[in-house]
Computed example of a mutant assay.
Amino acid sequence: MAETGQRLLIVDDNKVNRLLLSRSVEMLGHHAEIAENGRLAMARLNKEAFDLLLLDIEMPEMDGFEVLEALKADLALRDLPVIVTSSVEGLENIVRCIELGAEDYLPKPVNKTLLEARINSCLEKKRLRDEQRRLLQRFATREVAQDLAEQGFSIGGRRVEASILFCDIRGFTALSEAQTPEESIEFLNAYYTLMFDAIANHGGIVTLMIGDGLMAVFGAPQALENTAVSAVSAAQDMFAMMADFNSERIAAGAPAIRIGAGIATGEVVAGYAGTEARASYTCIGRTVNLAARLEAHTKAIGCELLIDETTKNGLGATLESRLIQGVEFTGFSEVMDVYSIAT
Rank of each mutant, 00 (worst) to 15 (best):
residue 179 Q to I: 03
residue 317 A to F: 10
residue 165 L to S: 01
residue 9 L to T: 06
residue 75 L to N: 12
residue 187 F to W: 13
residue 241 M to Q: 14
residue 339 Y to R: 07
residue 38 G to V: 03
residue 273 A to S: 14
residue 120 N to H: 13
residue 54 L to K: 01
residue 83 I to R: 03
residue 26 E to M: 11
residue 216 A to F: 06
residue 17 N to H: 07
residue 194 L to C: 08
residue 143 E to Q: 15
residue 245 F to K: 00
residue 12 D to V: 02
residue 148 L to T: 05
residue 133 R to K: 15
residue 56 D to A: 05
residue 330 T to R: 14
residue 107 P to F: 14
residue 216 A to C: 03
residue 221 P to Q: 06
residue 54 L to R: 03
residue 144 V to H: 00
residue 154 S to Q: 14
residue 199 I to K: 02
residue 233 S to L: 11
residue 319 L to T: 01
residue 338 V to R: 03
residue 194 L to F: 08
residue 145 A to I: 09
residue 255 P to Y: 13
residue 108 K to N: 02
residue 262 G to M: 10
residue 315 L to F: 08
residue 68 L to I: 15
residue 178 A to D: 12
residue 38 G to F: 01
residue 215 M to S: 05
residue 131 E to Q: 10
residue 11 V to Q: 02
residue 30 H to W: 08
residue 305 L to W: 02
residue 3 E to M: 13
residue 130 D to A: 11
residue 116 E to M: 14
residue 128 L to W: 12
residue 59 M to L: 04
residue 165 L to Y: 13
residue 214 L to E: 00
residue 131 E to S: 09
residue 133 R to W: 10
residue 327 V to N: 02
residue 333 S to W: 09
residue 40 L to N: 07
residue 66 E to G: 06
residue 328 E to P: 06
residue 190 A to E: 14
residue 184 S to P: 00
residue 287 T to K: 01
residue 255 P to T: 10
residue 27 M to E: 15
residue 91 L to V: 14
residue 154 S to V: 08
residue 41 A to V: 03
residue 85 T to G: 09
residue 302 G to D: 08
residue 176 S to Q: 02
residue 87 S to D: 09
residue 57 I to L: 15
residue 237 D to Y: 09
residue 203 G to M: 04
residue 235 A to F: 08
residue 58 E to F: 12
residue 212 D to V: 10
residue 187 F to A: 00
residue 239 F to C: 06
residue 98 I to V: 13
residue 303 C to W: 07
residue 327 V to A: 10
residue 123 L to K: 02
residue 22 S to L: 05
residue 71 L to R: 06
residue 51 D to I: 04
residue 167 C to Y: 08
residue 232 V to D: 00
residue 146 Q to V: 12
residue 322 R to D: 10
residue 168 D to Q: 01
residue 67 V to H: 00
residue 295 E to Y: 01
residue 110 V to D: 00
residue 333 S to L: 12
residue 289 N to D: 10
residue 236 Q to Y: 09
residue 77 L to K: 07
residue 23 R to A: 12
residue 224 L to P: 00
residue 62 M to Y: 05
residue 270 A to Q: 02
residue 58 E to T: 09
residue 246 N to C: 08
residue 275 T to M: 12
residue 168 D to A: 12
residue 248 E to L: 15
residue 31 H to Q: 14
residue 102 A to N: 04
residue 183 E to T: 04
residue 97 C to I: 04
residue 62 M to G: 07
residue 50 F to N: 00
residue 226 N to F: 11
residue 227 T to Q: 13
residue 237 D to R: 10
residue 48 E to C: 10
residue 237 D to V: 10
